[in-house]
Simulated scan of single mutants.
Amino acid sequence: MNFNNLLITYNGAIGQVVINRPKKLNALNKETLQELHEAFSALEEDDEVKTIILTGSGEKAFVAGADISEFAHFSEEEGGRLAAEGQETVFNYIENLRKPVIAAINGFALGGGLELAMACHFRVASHNARMGLPEVSLGVIPGYGGTQRLPQLIGKGRALELIMTASMIDVDRALSYGLVNHVVSQEELIEFCEKLADKISNNSSVAISHAIKAVNAGFKNSNGYAAEIEAFGACFGTEDFKEGTTAFLEKRKADFPGR
């Protein structure tokens, strides 16, 4: 896959997506959002890829926000369409991807950048990372799911404070809030994420995809418990379930076929 604003690499069963606009602090423009959709679509269909790491190029930013120059003069209708299309093709798409996506936050994750990280299944940050949703300082609100995912992750009160003050927080506060799962040095960030990805890849990819779907259902206008029951039952019809239970009974390591 060749892109203008992304770098795609592979390490065994791990696919890595790097947003590569360092001169713009990896800000999200229309082209980059389209490329992200295409990249994640291709990685989801690649049977060799079990887990995906998403990060930014350079040492300053994961994604410092959206490219404001592209929408500064938009009308109400254009603004609404911008949010709807972005959520559908990238942010919601990543959240509902069948394969786990780990955000490796290597610097500033602001506005659309934090929204992108929150759309991933979990987050690991380097010590220099800073996070926030500064949209109200521009006279607008988060439009790529920030008003929904941030309260889900850190609670309503903390989320409203961050949104209304347009403040940045450091990694210590992000960790204490539950916004990130782990904090490591910038030098260790990708290696740490790869170790997590390897642990995930050793398990049933089919079961993991069902788990993602069931967990997400609990945060939507649906019955998460019913979704869990349905997904649990579906697992019994998979080759991965047969292999996993057989391996357990035979006291050996499972070799999941991913079906």
Rank of each mutant, 00 (worst) to 15 (best):
residue 257 P to G: 09
residue 131 M to R: 07
residue 89 T to Q: 12
residue 85 E to Y: 02
residue 90 V to W: 13
residue 136 V to D: 11
residue 223 N to V: 09
residue 70 E to W: 01
residue 82 L to S: 06
residue 28 L to H: 11
residue 16 Q to A: 07
residue 127 H to D: 07
residue 124 V to N: 07
residue 119 A to T: 02
residue 71 F to Y: 14
residue 102 I to C: 06
residue 240 D to W: 01
residue 183 V to W: 02
residue 257 P to N: 06
residue 3 F to L: 08
residue 89 T to E: 12
residue 136 V to A: 09
residue 78 E to A: 15
residue 246 T to V: 01
residue 73 H to S: 15
residue 90 V to P: 14
residue 101 V to Q: 03
residue 161 E to S: 09
residue 254 A to N: 11
residue 235 C to L: 13
residue 158 R to L: 08
residue 96 N to W: 04
residue 144 Y to F: 15
residue 258 G to D: 10
residue 135 E to V: 00
residue 140 V to G: 01
residue 116 L to Y: 13
residue 124 V to Q: 09
residue 151 P to K: 09
residue 234 A to E: 14
residue 137 S to W: 00
residue 102 I to H: 07
residue 84 A to L: 07
residue 114 L to H: 08
residue 43 L to A: 01
residue 88 E to I: 04
residue 39 A to M: 09
residue 81 R to P: 00
residue 207 A to F: 09
residue 59 E to L: 01
residue 11 N to M: 11
residue 165 T to I: 02
residue 222 S to V: 01
residue 255 D to A: 12
residue 29 N to M: 06
residue 197 A to L: 08
residue 87 Q to E: 12
residue 54 L to F: 07
residue 194 E to D: 11
residue 120 C to D: 10
residue 120 C to G: 01
residue 197 A to V: 01
residue 182 H to L: 13
residue 196 L to I: 14
